[in-house]
Computed example of a mutant assay.
Amino acid sequence: MIEGRVVHKVSNALQITFHAGPGDPLAVGVQGAGNGFGAKTAILFGFKNGGTGTHRLTYRDGSVVWVQSRDSAPTILSRGDGTALGTIQRADTSTAVGSTAGTLFHFVPDPEEPRTPELFRLLVLDRMGAETARLDVIRTVGGWTVRRLVEDLYNESIWWDRAGQPLPVPILGTRLWLKHAPDPVERDVLLGACVDITLGLRPYVAVMK
């Protein structure tokens, strides 16, 4: 499981910190780190609490993924050196398309209970339509303590099962349950999607709109 929790930085930018277990973070995403001066000023003065912009995801080894969240256009994912990773096309469901490998993932609503007062529930399907992960988008503090039936999902341990404090952020975080360890491109795209949802406030399924 990879869990990402959102807080505000001193600069008022939203920040999501991902953990895959106890210890140092796996990665940290920062709202608008690649924005121009005007957009950064809007964040600083509290006029832009999440939303479109170029967000930076930095792994603990220093590698970077840029997540460009856009209105009415696909999200663009790229590496720190500018190498294209792919795009995420959003509609009533969403599809991640790699720059060279074609379709990587489909994001669809959980057919049993896609929305509760605490969270949104999504399924992540591979290019053939098989379930590869489940994604919880946490809406309220209570969402952190709602357990999902994980069955045979990869690495199903919950390292912390506690409610955090109420945060003045639109989305409190994400929780990604994986059926198998992702390869580097899959990992970058999945965490990029989590950044897009929490910092970019992009809806990935119809019930999130």
Rank of each mutant, 00 (worst) to 15 (best):
L135W: 13
D61K: 03
V97K: 08
N49C: 01
L167Q: 15
V64W: 03
S94E: 05
A193E: 05
P203G: 09
I43A: 04
S72P: 01
V124G: 05
L178R: 08
G192N: 10
D136A: 14
V108S: 00
L119G: 00
S78R: 13
M208F: 06
W66G: 08
W160N: 11
G98Q: 08
T132A: 06
L57P: 11
V7D: 12
G51V: 03
E131L: 01
W177C: 07
A33W: 02
L199D: 04
D161T: 03
W144G: 02
L85W: 02
E186Y: 05
G46N: 06
L153M: 12
H55M: 09
V6T: 14
G46M: 10
I158M: 11
P109E: 01
R175E: 15
D24Q: 12
F18G: 12
N12E: 06
K9G: 02
C194I: 00
R90K: 11
E3P: 00
G82A: 04
H180D: 14
Q89K: 14
R79F: 01
L199M: 05
Q68K: 12
C194D: 10
G62D: 05
H55E: 06
L167Y: 05
A206P: 02
S94T: 12
G4V: 06
A133C: 06
E131F: 00
A133V: 04
P168R: 07
K209Y: 12
P22E: 10
Y204Q: 10
R162N: 06
V141C: 04
P74W: 07
E118A: 10
G62I: 07
P109A: 01
P25E: 01
T93V: 15
R147Y: 01
T174L: 07
E151A: 14
